[in-house]
Design a protein around this nucleic acid. Structure first.
Length: 598
RNA sequence: CGGGGUGUAGCUCAGCCUGGUAGAGCAUUAGCUUUGGGAGCUAAGGGUCGCGAGUUCGAAUCCCGCCGCCCCGACCA
């Protein structure tokens, strides 16, 4: 299975009907397999056709509200065991990627217990499994940031309005999406709590959309001499940007991130730092999150407001869209000029500092979901999984249960004594008072990398029965392996990295096989990405261009936009020779990545 | 902020066209049965039908306004 999915825009169009229709047709389970041809059974979803190339295609038959395989069986006129034998697959999510990718994304966030919407518009509540992944990201990233010579600090969430006004482009870039604090008191007016008109702030405060301005102000005081440079600092913080359209983890009004800010004596120092941060993000994404990415420079019109140059890592999601997963900016002397960050050099002269900033956010979790998720939920990369091994005791309400749980505790202890990815293996015994089978599927949806199911027979033989979440199914059905306990425990420091590598290899293969070159002219792009091809999966395009700027670039942007395409970046790895610019026919100087994007 | 869709029990939804006692499945709770894998039977609890105004003897249903959510667009360091 190619494992790539695309949601066609026009697929959502509803047939015209008289009267109001309530309720999206959401189906609980889906079955696939040869039996589906029995028309009396699973009813077809009245969405448009399935579009994922040769993936699930026509074999896919979601069921109307069918929560029991048994119901499928009776519909099909088969016994339950026949139905199982005949390879009907029930997936743990209510919607598959092939049916509706955006809805699948929503489902996985909810069903994997990662986050939920909050009463505050556009903001999310990050739940323990989702936050646990973020904590692992923080730990790993923080270690790398500190290894590069940065220290952590913390700046206030509220920034005086006048600060944001200091850098012209910066203002323009952020003004439209800022939350503003204008009052410091509430008052009941006619029984309704309102900001007290008499408590208006002399100067409004903005909730930080990023901290360049307030940090630059501090830098101007902290940087006096060349001896103070380079100054390298980082903060973990929350950020507020009043987004028009929000999506969990990908674009929310409030999100969590890390922002590094550095000041250097000269351009070379800033450039080096910008590239160091970019490489840190690339290796982090690939090694820790198993997200293959392409690092490169953003085109002029996609730069951070106020930056001299902006670099990004771009990851390919399973619907073929690109996700900007991290950015690094060389700010040159723009912010230093605006905020007076100057130092005295060894000769006594006064010079402007060169600054950089770089960040990654909770958006990375969205990238993990859309890269490693499948129709049974998330497959959490072991390096960031809050629990790497989950043990489900197959208790049966019998006296021997206590003994079984004790056996599981010992297994957990043995497991936690092993080291992997530089720390102890994270293991959890699920003792929740619910059915073992329900617990299994909970952990499948959350994507615990290794799920152990330990029953009396395992205990008696000193064995461990377990699933690898990355290879949950064989021929459509969950497939477990059984090992001697000692063998299982001793093998963990090989098995967990093997799972990590398998996830990476799968994603890397998908990305590489879906980046297409050979576009000689813009019409080739139109043929490939054009309207009539809209319902098919598209990956990314590698095209050559002459790197226009100003008006000519605006025109390129508009032409791409007509195809819903954007320029992602100019990869650091460039070919030796270039053909013609696909936009102008002029000699090309650079290769860029073009894609639809989140 | 524009276009479309949508909002009924914790979840997924039916009921709306054609106004007349608030429904189903799952989940929850209790009891019994079952036990190498997403259990069965029985019973119980649970809803200001998004909010507000209107038409009407009577509104989940019809009309108007507002809000949230989803998709598309615009926007997006």
């Amino acid at each position: 299975m190619a494992g790539v999915f695309h949601h066609a825009a026009n697929r959502r169009a509803q047939p015209a009907r008289g009267g109001r229709r309530r309720g999206a047709r959401r189906r609980a389970w889906c079955a696939q397999g040869p039996q589906s041809r029995h028309e009396g059974g699973a009813r077809r979803r009245d969405r448009g056709g399935c579009v994922a190339g040769d993936c699930l295609g026509d074999l896919d038959r979601p069921l109307e509200h069918a929560s029991k395989l048994r119901r499928v069986a009776s519909h099909l006129g088969l016994s339950l065991s026949e139905t199982r034998k005949d390879n009907l697959t029930m997936h743990a999510l209510k919607v598959t990627r092939a049916e509706d990718f955006p809805e699948w994304y929503q489902a996985i966030v909810r069903e994997a217990d990662l986050a939920e919407l909050s009463p505050t518009r556009g903001c999310m509540i990050i739940k323990p499994w989702g936050y646990g992944i973020w904590e692992r990201i923080q730990d790993e990233m923080d270690r790398r940031i500190k290894a590069s010579g940065c220290e952590n600090y913390y700046f206030p969430m509220m920034i005086p309005l006048s600060f944001i006004a200091k850098e012209a482009e910066h203002v323009e870039g952020f003004a439209k999406e800022m939350a503003v604090v204008t009052h410091h008191r509430l008052k009941a007016i006619d029984g309704v709590l309102k900001p007290d008109p008499e408590a208006e702030l002399a100067e409004p405060l903005i909730l930080r959309p990023t901290s360049e301005t307030i940090i630059g102000d501090a830098f101007s005081r902290w940087v006096k001499s060349y001896r103070d440079l380079p100054l390298k600092l980082n903060q973990w913080a929350n950020i507020v940007r009043w987004e028009m359209r929000t999506r969990m983890f990908l674009r929310t009004a409030e999100f969590l991130w890390q922002e590094g800010h550095t000041a250097h004596a000269d351009e070379a120092g800033a450039v080096e730092e910008t590239m160091r941060a970019l490489e840190m993000y690339r290796s982090f994404a690939e090694e820790v999150l198993a997200l293959p990415v392409i690092a490169g420079e953003k085109p002029e019109h996609e730069r951070f407001p106020g930056a001299v140059s902006t670099f990004s890592i771009e990851a390919m999601m399973q619907d073929g869209k690109a996700l900007q997963a991290g950015t690094s900016h060389n700010l040159g002397t723009h912010f230093a000029e605006a905020q007076n960050i100057r130092y005295q050099d060894s000769g006594g002269g006064i010079s402007l500092a060169h600054t950089t900033s770089w960040g990654v956010s909770t958006r990375l979790i969205g990238g993990v979901i859309m890269t490693h998720g499948d129709d049974d939920g998330l497959r959490t990369p072991p390096a960031v999984a809050p629990h790497q091994v989950v043990i489900v005791p197959m208790v049966r309400g019998k006296p021997e249960d206590a003994q079984l749980i004790a056996y599981c505790d010992v297994l957990a202890q043995e497991t936690a004594s092993r080291q992997c990815f530089g720390s102890r293996v994270r293991v959890h015994v699920d003792k929740k008072d619910s059915r073992p089978a329900d617990k299994r599927w909970d952990w499948v949806r959350r994507g615990a990398p290794i799920i152990c199911e330990i029953g009396p027979r395992d205990m008696a033989a000193d064995k461990v029965t377990f699933f690898r979440r990355d290879r949950l199914r064989v021929d459509g059905r969950p497939s477990a392996a059984t090992l001697d306990q000692a063998e299982f425990v001793l093998g963990l420091d090989r098995l967990l990295p093997e799972i990590q590598n398998a996830l990476f290899a799968e994603a890397k293969h998908r990305m590489e096989s879906n980046i297409r070159g050979g576009f000689a002219a813009f019409s080739d792009l139109e043929d490939y990405f054009g309207e009539d091809q809209d319902s098919q999966f598209k990956g990314w395009a590698r095209v050559h261009w002459s790197r226009p700027s100003g008006k000519a670039l605006d025109e390129v942007e508009a032409r791409l936009k007509a195809l819903k395409l954007t320029i992602r970046n100019a990869p650091l790895q460039q070919p030796n020779t270039f053909g013609k610019c696909v936009f102008s026919g002029a000699p090309a100087v650079e290769e860029i990545l073009v894609a639809r994007a989140y």
